[in-house]
Design a protein around this nucleic acid. Structure first.
Length: 564
RNA sequence: CGGGGCGUAGCGUAGUCCGGUUAGCGCGCCUGCUUUGGGAGCAGGAGGUCGCAGGUUCGAAUCCUGCCGCCCCGACCA
């Protein structure tokens, strides 16, 4: 492809609306343009990458016996009502105004609809059906460029099986395919064993990429690979033992001290000797939760411990229940359950609220002063906490969810009546699995992990072109004809070549080449051409070689073989 | 949906507080000449409903009201 004729509108300046790296670079490299919030056009160069990603996905899905479908994006609303998902999706589901259709945000319904009509016997299974298509979700807040859009390309696969045992096999096939896909794309990812979500299943895993642009907070152990959503992650913390000399409780006047930070500042103490109080309402009853210092309450852990409905108390409730506002609440004389995080287990000489505004207490001994106290692991895991599976430390960071696989079970087959007959002629619902990958997210995540201050750095698998050929001076016939020759020769060798044949200054072309980030750059300039040489640069490492034109082919082969 | 920010030429922006020339600058674009190994130089040129609508005023990019759009934080995320 000749760059002079290729629509690649690169930008020198960073568009004001983009803040995350992948978004900035996709815009600057002329791969995408925004049309509306969360809605992007892929321009030729960007679409080329997207097709490369899709093809890898397609090959790996085919390799496990997947069959590709092309399904409608507009679905009858009725079928979505039958599974209760019009209500479940709520505002996220796009509705068509002038007919009873919805824009499909996923395709369980349609797949089940087809299965119902044709998969009637145990002999018809297993099946792995997939599609790579645009999905629509009315996201309340699209963000981070292509990472959370209202319209996005998704690979969705669905498996149909006769039993949960068979589903396990299908699930592990898809798991393997996912690992192959992300490996081939060159992504540094990890797998989170997620809680069986609200989708109602028996198992699920999320494939994640560490990124500041991510929306999920994940605790990960680099040593044993344990990974979990920080909301549910288990972690070990070093126990703090009681101090030998226990003090008696004493009141401290603390005017206008509301936060732990302010308390520590006011009393010149460390937050580890503070017991922070949070009041929750559990099925109508007040529960006081004590955390050390500024540890945050993990509400899903708390819910698990308490059972029933759990919500934070409103400010008015707090005052009524404790006699104080948030910031001065404490465990002494609290009427209701008191449950403390394990980090506070049997501690003494703690500081806490006095249940009296503008007062705190010191010398608190949980063992002595709060007799009915209970203990549980309630804190949100933090970087540096110990891994519960091995002896190393957990790291907590944000991550992007690239893919999600889960065992659906029979929720949809039962709702839509997709039944089959077994060997004995008995009828059962089809057992399903569902497996999604955000295709643009693969692209964005790759970029998040592979760029430098000059621009993109593509690997072989995803690069839109293998080679970026630069003719330095298009006014010199010798350069032009040699570059043209290389352009044609390299393509005959099977390389995809982007030829910068524009009549532009050298620096301009170099910078565009670095921005676009093809793995190999070949420069044809007057200086080297005199010696029958050209210059070959490896984008990723910046290594530069002068290569005899006659040896270009073999050198290029060797070089490309060594690249990722 | 709550909080914050922004909206001026294709892109990046100044001007807005304190109303008053022809709305300025950089990049990009067009023409010509020069230039061609790290985002070229000179000369000339095109391009603006100052987000939209209303209001105040002799006069509005600037003040007021309403709306729309975009970004960020939060909530949300089968």
């Amino acid at each position: 492809m000749k760059l002079s004729k290729y629509f690649v509108p690169t930008l020198k300046e960073v568009p004001a609306d983009a803040t995350v790296k992948s978004h900035i670079l996709m815009l600057r490299s002329g791969m995408i343009r925004m049309v509306s919030a969360g809605i992007y056009s892929f321009l030729p160069l960007g679409y080329k990458v997207l097709r490369k990603v899709s093809q890898i996905v397609r090959e790996e899905m085919d390799a496990i016996g997947g069959q590709e479908f092309h399904l409608p994006a507009i679905n009858p609303k009725e079928i979505w009502e039958q599974t209760g998902r019009v209500e479940a999706f709520g505002d996220i589901l796009f509705h068509i105004k002038n007919r009873d259709y919805v824009l499909a945000p996923t395709h369980e319904e349609i797949i089940t609809f087809h299965a119902k009509n044709v998969v009637k016997s145990y002999k018809d299974m297993p099946q792995i059906w997939y599609q790579i298509q645009t999905k629509f979700r009315n996201e309340p807040r699209p963000r981070s460029g292509v990472i959370r859009g209202r319209q996005f390309l998704m690979k969705d696969a669905y498996t149909l099986d006769v039993s949960y045992e068979a589903l396990d096999i299908a699930y592990s096939l898809n798991d393997k395919a996912y690992r192959n896909i992300f490996d081939r794309c060159g992504l540094d990812y990890f797998v989170v064993g997620a809680s069986s979500g609200a989708m109602g299943g028996t198992g699920s895993e999320e494939f994640m990429v560490k990124s500041d642009a991510g929306e999920d907070s994940v605790a990960h152990c680099g040593s044993c690979g344990y990974a979990a959503n920080a909301e549910v992650a288990a972690s070990k913390v070093d126990a703090i033992v009681r101090e030998k000399d226990g003090k008696e409780i004493y009141d401290i006047h603390t005017p206008n001290v509301r936060t732990i930070d302010e308390l520590c500042e006011f009393l010149k103490i460390d937050e580890t000797v503070c017991a922070k109080s949070r009041v929750y309402i559990n099925d109508g009853k007040a529960v006081l939760v004590l955390m050390q210092g500024n540890d945050d309450v993990n509400e899903s852990k708390l819910t698990k411990v308490l059972g029933g409905n759990v919500r934070p108390g409103h400010p008015e409730e707090l005052l009524k229940i404790t006699g104080a506002d948030a910031g001065s609440i404490g465990p002494i004389d609290f009427k209701g359950r008191v449950i403390a995080d394990l980090k506070l287990n049997d501690r003494n000489n703690l500081f806490s609220g006095a249940n009296k505004n503008n007062y705190h207490i010191g010398g608190l001994d949980l063992k002595r002063d709060v007799t009915k106290i209970e203990y549980a692991d309630l804190r949100i895991a933090q970087s540096g906490d110990g891994c519960t599976k091995c002896d190393n430390k957990l790291e907590v960071f944000t991550a992007i969810e690239l893919g999600h696989i889960f065992k659906l079970g029979t929720k949809y087959s039962e709702a839509l009546g997709a039944m089959y007959l077994d060997e004995k002629g008995e009828e059962h619902p089809i057992v399903m699995g569902s497996y999604g990958i955000g295709v643009e997210r693969i692209m964005a995540c790759y970029i998040e992990q592979n760029y430098d201050d000059k621009g993109l750095i593509w690997n072989k698998a995803l690069a839109p072109f293998d080679v970026h050929l630069i003719a330095l001076n298009m006014k010199k016939d010798a350069i032009v004809s040699m570059a043209e020759k290389l352009f044609s020769d390299l393509q005959k060798e099977g390389y995809e070549v982007l030829f910068d044949d524009r009549d532009a200054a050298a620096g301009f072309k170099f910078n565009d080449a670095d921005l676009l980030g093809m793995p190999i750059q070949i420069v044809v300039g007057e200086r080297k051409l005199k010696e029958n040489k050209c210059e070959v640069t490896v984008r990723a490492t910046g290594e530069r070689f002068d290569v005899e034109l006659s040896e270009l082919n073999s050198k290029l082969k060797d070089l490309i073989d060594t690249l990722k």
